[in-house]
Amino acid sequence: MRALTVDLARAGSLTLSELPDPEPGPDELLVEGLAIGICGTDREIVRGEFGVGRRLVIGHESLGRVISGPGFAPGDLVAGVVRRPDPVPCPACARGEFDMCLNGQYTERGITDLDGYGSTLWTVPAAYAVGVSSSTGVLVEPASVVVKAWERLDRLALFGFESVLVTGAGPIGLLAALIGVQRGLDVHVFDLAADGPKPALVESLGATYHRTLPDHRIVIEATGAPSVVAQVLGRDLVCLTGVPSTEVVPVDLGQVNRDLVLHNGIVFGTVNANVRHYREASAVLDRADDAWLQSMITRRVPLESYAEAFETRPGDVKVVLEL
């Protein structure tokens, strides 16, 4: 099979390799790899900024077609779950909540100690595969992260809410806005882009696009920009989904503390997802307009041109590498 591999000990080592075809176990699916989504984590791995040690097949945002295995029919489209529980297990993993692993000994396909889905063939335990209905199923993994964010917001927003602010109109921000619109909420999205696809994607969704930060008490932060995070920290309920850059900004922690205490505020972070989040993410995509989802994918790159998929270009929202 062909596979995209990196040597985690060397920056810039991304290459298209020939590897032995995988042999599925009795509880595993054999899957034809169709596509992977490319995100910031993938680019960090390629630059040598993340990971330790060995050769790794990259790719954690997956889409494939079942060849054989239990629980699915040949030809079914599936996405693979990324994280696996740690072997100890910690209290969270022992309860099946491996996305909340407490000791950090989890493994992750294409990220941490497990080969990913960036190959023309891959295997996955049937219990860690989720059915999808179209080629936009490659968005299930980022959508699962947002589903988890909304699940936690529901638990923490004791008196409910009618509007939400999403900061950032990248894939995570747009998918967060999609779920808010599906829930019938008044959704506002903040991003700095004045042109390109982002404003149109937000507006065609039925949300309101802003280039200056509006004042809302419920925030899903999806930029990872410290300067934006600093401005929303004192809001009533803030979910952080973005991984921050190295930008350093001054923050009045005393004022943040005062605002959180006096407003009974909550700030929490979320990353990764459980199997139930993937299943709900698949349902979210099924309810969405497929043309809108397709328009989120601003570049589809063939496998032979794989290096181009890891470039950051103006106008990119979501880049997908076709396997």
Score class of each variant (00 low, 15 high):
43 R>K: 08
305 S>W: 00
139 L>R: 02
50 F>T: 15
256 V>N: 05
64 G>Q: 06
253 L>K: 06
289 D>P: 09
43 R>M: 06
222 A>F: 02
88 V>S: 14
239 C>Q: 04
219 V>T: 05
98 F>G: 04
27 D>Y: 05
166 V>R: 11
212 T>D: 09
91 P>A: 03
59 G>P: 02
164 V>P: 13
169 A>F: 06
254 G>T: 13
259 D>W: 08
175 L>F: 04
290 D>Y: 10
145 V>F: 10
163 S>D: 15
278 Y>L: 10
239 C>R: 02
320 V>H: 06
256 V>K: 00
286 D>F: 08
17 S>P: 08
170 G>R: 10
212 T>I: 05
182 Q>D: 01
142 P>A: 07
219 V>N: 05
153 L>V: 03
213 L>F: 05
83 R>G: 14
211 R>T: 10
115 D>R: 01
136 T>F: 04
30 L>K: 08
223 T>L: 07
144 S>R: 08
136 T>H: 09
261 V>A: 15
142 P>S: 07
276 R>Q: 11
131 G>P: 15
85 P>Q: 03
173 G>D: 06
239 C>G: 02
98 F>S: 09
34 L>R: 07
289 D>A: 14
266 I>P: 10
311 E>C: 02
140 V>M: 12
177 A>E: 06
175 L>K: 05
46 V>T: 11
219 V>S: 12
106 Y>D: 14
298 T>V: 03
11 A>C: 10
139 L>V: 07
316 D>V: 02
275 V>H: 07
15 T>A: 15
213 L>I: 01
148 K>A: 12
76 D>C: 00
136 T>Q: 10
255 Q>I: 10
140 V>R: 08
238 V>K: 06
1 M>L: 03
259 D>V: 07
172 I>K: 05
36 I>Y: 00
228 V>G: 12
22 P>K: 12
136 T>A: 11
10 R>D: 02
77 L>T: 03
157 A>L: 04
166 V>L: 10
231 Q>A: 13
205 L>T: 09
81 V>A: 14
148 K>T: 07
235 R>D: 03
306 Y>M: 00
246 T>N: 15
88 V>W: 12
268 F>K: 03
194 A>R: 15
164 V>Y: 09
137 G>T: 02
198 K>A: 11
224 G>S: 08
97 E>K: 13
188 H>G: 01
279 R>F: 08
79 A>P: 06
323 L>T: 11
98 F>P: 10
118 G>Q: 02
75 G>L: 00
86 D>C: 15
154 D>Q: 10
261 V>E: 11
147 V>S: 12
125 P>V: 04
118 G>F: 00
199 P>R: 05
284 V>Y: 07
92 A>W: 09
21 D>Y: 12
303 L>N: 00
4 L>N: 00
312 T>K: 08
259 D>R: 14
57 V>H: 00
193 A>H: 13
29 L>W: 00
304 E>D: 14
102 L>V: 09
65 R>M: 05
67 I>T: 13
226 P>I: 14
193 A>V: 12
192 L>P: 06
197 P>F: 09
192 L>I: 15
194 A>C: 12
146 V>H: 07
40 G>V: 04
311 E>M: 09
180 G>Q: 00
1 M>P: 05
199 P>H: 07
185 L>V: 08
241 T>D: 04
92 A>Y: 06
84 R>W: 14
254 G>E: 13
75 G>F: 01
168 G>K: 02
148 K>H: 15
83 R>K: 15
